[in-house]
Computed example of a mutant assay.
Amino acid sequence: MKPSPITPLILGRGRAGQAIAHAFNWLKSSGAELAEPRFVARGTNWEEACRGVARPLACIANPHGLHTKALLEVAGAGIGFALCEKPAAVTMDELAKLRDLPTRVGILHGYRQSWGVAKLKELLDSGALGRLVAIEGRYWQASAAERALNPSPQKTWKDDPALSGPFDTYLDLGTHWVDAASFLAGAAPEKIRAFRSIPSGSPSHRDAHVQLSIHYPHLTAMASVSKLIHGAGNHFEINLLGEAGTATWNFERPDEIRLGHGREMRLIRRLKDSAGSGLPPFHGLGWLEGYVAIASGMVAEMNGVSKGAYPTLPEHLRILRPMLDADWI
């Protein structure tokens, strides 16, 4: 007997919630057995939301400070699978509550699912770069820069620490970069030292520029993470610095890696269709590629086809713990 289709139930109608809906609609249009995604109203009981739904998949995309509460409610309703925007927790107390969550949770760290980060890992594991000395990079945007030029910026949920948690840029963008670096390092950070800058007139929790020194068992990574870069787009970049070579991937050129040896540099380009959307090189979905890849992995796991290859909650908590326990300088 053919199983009932999976129904994505999405909490949150902002940019992330819409991205999740687009990802599932893309998979559905590509032949996946999925029901139309449904948006769950704020405050809805999850057991009520699942009424009449044979195979629910909870998707958490509400404000950061509400993620833990939502995941606990999803688990309490007996829902076996969920996707969650990062960060899953914004305090150490919340992190502890998620440690033994029975629900299988995928975290929407889309950059880790990209061709570029996967190719960097392949180069590293092949020995093409020699011994890895350091990982360095940046994640730059311009939203705080634009806000700084506005004499009367519009209030958003990120201005309320009850909704955003005690950080802005650090957990919003920094978690993505630390996740990708940790995947490449093959370990969770042992310790993080960090500096942050809060723009004049902004609430004390709205850090806009952060510099990170991330200490792993065998190397150190350094990153500049910022929403205060005037003129920036969505500049996510990772550099692997090896004794025998250097490799660089930049999200704004998603299907290319710059590979350096000595004084020479060459480009490696993606030649095959995307593992997420299935689209050819230089014709991908951009930011949505990661959402499609993670959603596809979760659907495959729910259907018993394969163990989903996507960032999981336990992995996320292992990088989130040192981030929440960082030494601020």
Rank of each mutant, 00 (worst) to 15 (best):
P217Q: 02
I238G: 10
E264R: 11
W26I: 11
E301Y: 04
S30Q: 09
K191T: 12
I268Y: 12
A134V: 08
V53Q: 00
G116Q: 11
N25R: 15
T91D: 08
A208V: 00
M92C: 07
R196A: 03
L259S: 07
H67I: 05
G130S: 10
W115I: 09
G43V: 04
P161V: 08
G165H: 02
P8H: 02
S164G: 13
P102K: 09
F195G: 12
M265F: 01
K155C: 03
V305F: 00
R270H: 10
L98N: 09
D255T: 07
V299F: 05
A194C: 15
G278W: 05
S213K: 11
G290E: 08
S306Q: 15
A19M: 00
L288D: 12
S306N: 01
T220C: 13
P8F: 06
T248Y: 09
D255M: 01
A145S: 08
K191N: 10
A247F: 12
N239R: 15
P5E: 05
L324I: 09
E256L: 12
S296M: 04
D327M: 10
P280R: 10
I79N: 02
L320T: 00
S204Q: 11
F236T: 05
R206K: 14
H218D: 15
K119M: 11
R112P: 09
